[in-house]
Design a binder for these strands. Structure first.
Lengths: 394, 394
DNA sequence: TTCTTTTCTAAAGACCATTGACGAAACTGG
DNA sequence: CCAGTTTCGTCAATGGTCTTTAGAAAAGAA
C-alpha cells in the first residue's frame, strides 16, 4: 500500500507562506499591510507567515522611509542582503556560475566564467571551488544551487543521458553529486526548461499561466509551462521537439538519426547552410555582423530555416495552446523583420483559434537567469510538502 | 488588485473528502478502517469526511457479509443505488445519452441513441427530454451531466467553435445551455479529452499520472494527462495535433487548410484512400470486414496511413514524454499486426529514451465512458475550492 | 496639543486533525 | 453456553490554525 501524506493543519501555514513568497515575487517588496490586502488573508495570518519566513532567512525587513500618514510600514522583501542562491550554467565550451538574491536579481559583478573542463571530476572540483568562493561572503547564507544543462536529462534521477556537445556529463548526476559535496539544495534542469522559467520570473510572462519557450540555438528544444508547473513528462524529456523526423534522409543529428527538425530549424543549421554556400565555416555572430553590414545576403538560407522554424512554432502552438510563445534564437539579431516573418509563416500554418490566442515574442531571459529561477522556484514550492498527492493502490 | 482565495481551515476537510473519493475510485469499495489505513489520516478524520460525503449523496453504505474476525465493517462505495450521473455524446449522425453510477459503471440498459437533430434548438430539446426520462428513477438523484463533443471547443466559455462534421453546435454553448435548462452541473469537453479520461477511469492508466490518448478516427486529436490534470492550454485547444501541416498541397481539411496531418493519418483518410482505389465509397467497417475475409488487400493504404500515424505518435511521445500512449483507431480491427507495425514505425522515429519509457497500447475506453468520467472527475475535484491558486498583481 | 490615519500585535472564538478511550459486534475456545 | 479476543466505529479532550475584534505605536494634520 502506498501511503499518502496525511493532511495536517500545518499545510495551511505552508500554503500561506508560499503565498507570501509568490506575492513578493510577483509584486516586489511590500509591507505586511499591503500583503494583507493583496493576499486575502488577514493581518495576523500574514504576520505569522512572515515571521516564519524571516526566521528561515528567505525574507528580510528593510527600512524605506515612506511618507505615509500613519505609522510607517516596515517593508519586506525577498532576502537579498542576507541570503543568496547560485546558478550554474553548464555548456559546451564555457560554464558560468553566478549568485543572485532570492528576488532573482543577478549579482553580475560576481559572475564567474570558466572553460568547461575535459572530465566530469574536474568539472565537479572546479564548481566546488568557485561555489566556495561565491559563498564566502559574511552574513550571507547560500540557500541553493540551480543548474542548467543541455542535452537529455532524466529529471527523476537528475541524470544527464545524452548530450552530443557535452559528453562529459553523460551518465552522471551533477545535481546529486554537487548537492552531496556542497551540502546545498540543488536542482538540475534542461536548459530549455531553465529558459522557460527565466521568462516567467524575469519577462512579462509572470501573468501568463500558460506559455511555451522555444529554443532554437545549438539544438531545438522547448519548455512548456502550464497551470503553474513546468511540463516535464514522466522522465523529464517533455518538449523534445527538435528530434521530430521531418526530412527524409536529412542531415545526421546528434541523436543518431537523420533529418531531425533541429538539423533544419536552429541557429546551427543556419550557420551550416550559410557556411556551406560561402565555402568556409563561420559563426552565427559573424554571419549576423556581415549581413547587417550588407556584406553578404543570407535571405535564402534565412527563409529556409524560418520556414522550418515556423513548423516548430506551429507544433508548439497547436499542441500546447499557450497564451504566449517565446522564441530564443540569434536569427532575430539579423533584424526586426525576422520575427515578423516568422509570425507570418506561422499564421499560414497554425490552427487559427490557437494562433489568435497566442502572442509570439522574442525571448528575453538567459540561461543564468533560468538556473537562478529554477532554484528559487524549488525553494518556494518546497515549502508546501504535499498539497496535491493522493493515495494509490492498496 | 486580483484577490486571492483566502486559505481557510475547511480546506483541509475538503482535501480529505477528495482523498476519500480518490481512494474509492482507485481501489473500489472499502470500509472506513481500510480507508484509514489507505489514506494515512486517522479514523475520526475519515469518519467525518465519509459522513459529509454520505450527507451530500456521493457515497453510500452497503452490507457485504464478510467473514472477518472482529466487528464486521460497514462498507462504503461511490453512490450507485442512490445517485447517478449522465453522459452525453454528441456526434455527427448519432448522439448517445447514458446514465452511470458514481463509480463510473454505465447503466447500459438505459442507454438512449438518437439521430443528431438538424438544428441546435432541437438538439437541446431532445436532450432535455431524454435526460428527464433517465432522471426519473425514484430514490436516485442525478448529480451531473458530462458532454463529449467533436471539433474545436473553447473550454473557458464551454463553447463549440468549429466542427466541420457537426456544424449545428458552432458558436453555441451546449454545456451552459443544458446546465441552465436542466439545473445540473454540466461539463463540456472535447471528445479526445473525454476519451483520455475514460482511459484513466476504466483502463489501467489509473496508476499512470502521465499518459496521452491519440484518437485517429474521423479526425486526429489528442488528449494529454499530466500531473493529475488534463492539459488544456489557455483556450482549451491543447492537443490539436491533427492540424499540423505535413503535406504540401495535400487534401483539403475541415479547418480550411490543405495537407493537415489528419487528412493522412486517420481512419477517414484510410477510408478515402481505399475507396479511391476501389472506385467507390466504402465505410471503414466494410473495409475491415472484407479485408479480414481476404476479399481485398489494403496493405499499401494501411502502410501509408500507419507511417503518418507513426509520425503523430512520435510527436506525442517526444513532446509529452508520457508513460503510456493509447491509440484509438478502427485500423486495429484489421489485425494484431497493425499495432505492432505502428510501434515498429514509431521506434525508428521517436527519441529513444522517450520511446523506451512509453508503452503504446490500443485504447479501450469509449466516448460514453469519457463523458461519464468527465463529470465524475468534475464532481470529485470541485470539492476542493481553491487548493492551488495564488495572488497575482496588486 | 489633540485628533486622525495607518500599521502591527494581542486576545478570544471557530474549525480541524490527532490522540486515547470506550462501546459494539462477531468469532474462538474451553 | 459464556468469557476472551479481535476488529470496527464513535466520543471527548488536546493542540494547531485562521478569523474577528480590540488595542498599542507612530507619524501627520488641525
Amino acid at each position: 500500500m502506498s501511503t499518502m501524506a496525511a493532511v495536517q493543519p500545518q499545510l495551511l501555514s505552508q500554503i500561506n507562506e508560499r503565498s507570501v513568497l509568490r506575492v513578493l515575487q510577483a509584486n516586489g517588496p511590500c509591507s505586511r499591510a499591503e500583503m494583507t490586502r493583496c493576499m486575502g488573508a488577514t493581518a495576523p495570518t500574514v504576520s505569522k507567515a512572515v515571521a516564519s519566513l524571516l526566521r528561515s532567512g528567505l525574507l528580510e525587513e528593510f527600512d524605506a522611509p515612506e511618507s505615509g500618514r500613519g505609522r510607517p510600514a516596515r517593508r519586506l522583501r525577498l532576502a537579498t542582503a542576507t541570503a543568496q542562491v547560485l546558478g550554474l550554467v553548464i555548456d559546451a565550451g564555457m560554464c558560468r556560475l553566478v549568485s543572485a538574491g532570492l528576488d532573482g536579481r543577478l549579482h553580475t559583478a560576481n559572475e564567474i566564467w570558466f572553460r568547461t573542463p575535459d572530465s566530469y571530476d574536474e568539472l565537479l572540483q572546479k564548481v566546488c571551488e568557485y561555489v566556495a568562493a561565491l559563498s564566502d561572503r559574511n552574513g550571507v547564507r547560500t540557500l541553493g544551487l540551480g543548474i542548467s544543462m543541455p542535452g537529455l536529462i532524466d529529471s527523476r534521477e537528475q541524470k544527464g543521458l545524452l548530450s552530443p556537445n557535452l559528453p562529459i556529463t553523460d551518465g552522471h548526476s551533477p545535481g546529486l553529486d554537487l548537492a552531496g559535496r556542497l551540502g546545498l539544495e540543488t536542482v538540475l534542469v534542461h536548459e530549455c526548461h531553465a529558459l522557460c522559467l527565466a521568462e516567467r520570473h524575469f519577462g512579462d510572462a509572470a501573468e501568463s499561466e500558460n506559455f511555451v519557450m522555444l529554443e532554437a540555438t545549438v539544438g531545438l528544444g522547448l519548455g512548456a509551462f502550464s497551470r503553474g508547473h513546468m511540463l516535464s513528462g514522466s522522465g523529464g524529456f517533455a518538449g523534445e521537439i527538435g528530434h521530430l523526423p521531418v526530412v527524409a534522409d536529412g542531415e545526421l543529428c546528434g541523436c543518431g538519426r537523420r533529418g531531425c527538425l533541429e538539423t533544419v530549424a536552429s541557429d546551427s543549421s543556419f550557420e551550416r547552410l550559410v557556411s556551406r554556400r560561402l565555402g568556409y565555416r563561420r559563426s552565427i555572430e559573424d554571419i549576423v555582423e556581415q549581413s547587417r553590414a550588407g556584406e553578404i545576403d543570407v535571405g535564402a538560407e534565412l527563409n529556409e530555416v524560418l520556414s522550418h522554424l515556423a513548423f516548430a512554432v506551429t507544433t508548439a502552438i497547436n499542441l500546447y495552446n499557450p497564451e504566449r510563445l517565446y522564441v530564443c534564437s540569434r536569427l532575430f539579431d539579423l533584424g526586426d523583420h525576422v520575427l515578423s516573418r516568422l509570425i507570418e509563416l506561422t499564421e499560414t500554418r497554425a490552427l487559427r483559434p490557437s494562433f489568435n490566442g497566442c502572442r509570439i515574442e522574442r525571448a528575453r531571459g538567459s540561461k543564468r537567469e533560468g538556473a537562478i529561477s529554477v532554484i528559487i522556484e524549488h525553494l518556494t514550492d518546497s515549502r508546501v510538502r504535499s498539497g496535491d498527492r493522493f493515495a494509490k493502490l492498496a
